[in-house]
């Protein structure tokens, strides 16, 4: 199992635009995870907030933070505060729903995102654990439900048409350059999904190497 916080820069950092690291910077990170997992033009986003997120999202700027993330912006991008308008200008229908009940994953800073276009939809359940760090507790792609350990980084591989049983080659590479503490194999009717919980943060070079060598691999 990995620690939740694994870098001194989780504690001293990120450099960000306010006002809240958990409700703004962390929310950008949740939106970005959905953007990467969706991996295509987004037309509709529905955000369901729970507990502290439901009560304080307006004051904390959580709405524009998630909108920024689903457009792929970084937490210190100057467009972050205008991201809801920008999303709507770019034809993304984005809505925010305050849920009354408890978080489905028992964390007060929980957001569930449904992201779709005409052909494709995903669902992501994540929480913001403080200082801009997040955990991804569940996502659904192609009707396959995946429950990672939570802390990032996470590597996701979608094997379209089940052409690479058990993702042998990818597993070998990941094991070598980004050691993991858990691998999950999830079988769908048409596609398989493999998920790796990685021990330490990956360098940009490592991410680039994996994404270049393998198609349909997403590094979160």
């Amino acid at each position: 199992m990995g620690a939740k916080f694994r870098s001194v820069f989780d504690i001293i950092g990120p450099t960000m635009i306010g006002p809240s690291s958990s409700h703004t910077a962390g929310a950008v990170a949740i939106g970005r995870a959905a953007y990467k997992l969706f991996n295509g033009p987004i037309r509709k986003v529905t955000v369901y907030y729970y507990e502290s997120f439901a009560k304080t999202h307006r004051g904390h700027g959580t709405d524009y933070a998630i909108a920024a993330g689903v457009q792929g912006f970084a937490p210190d991008d100057s467009r972050v505060p205008r991201a809801v308008e920008l999303a709507r200008q770019h034809g993304i229908d984005i809505r925010f729903v305050e849920e009354e009940g408890p978080s489905p994953i028992h964390h007060p800073n929980t957001a569930v995102l449904e992201v779709s276009n005409d052909n494709h939809s995903i669902e992501l359940t994540a929480c913001s654990i403080g200082g801009g760090s997040i955990e991804i507790r569940q996502f659904v792609i192609d009707n396959i439900t995946v429950q990672p350990a939570g802390p990032l980084p996470i590597i996701v591989y979608i094997d379209h048409g089940k052409k690479h049983p058990n993702a042998v080659e990818l597993t070998g590479v990941v094991e070598k350059i980004a050691p993991f503490y858990r691998k999950q194999s999830l079988k769908g009717p048409i596609n398989d999904i493999y998920e790796f919980d990685i021990k330490n943060y990956m360098s940009a070079a490592t991410i680039q190497q994996i994404e270049k060598q393998f198609k349909n691999v997403i590094c979160l």
């Binding site: 450099t15 306010g18 006002p19």
Partner: peptide, 21 residues
């Protein structure tokens, strides 16, 4: 005050507590 005014800060460890350090 800069954080509340949507300025750039370094979260230490969070944005709400970014002034202490």
């Amino acid at each position: 005050e800069v954080n509340a005014a949507m300025g750039v800060v370094c979260a230490t460890p969070t944005a709400g507590s970014s002034g202490t350090l």
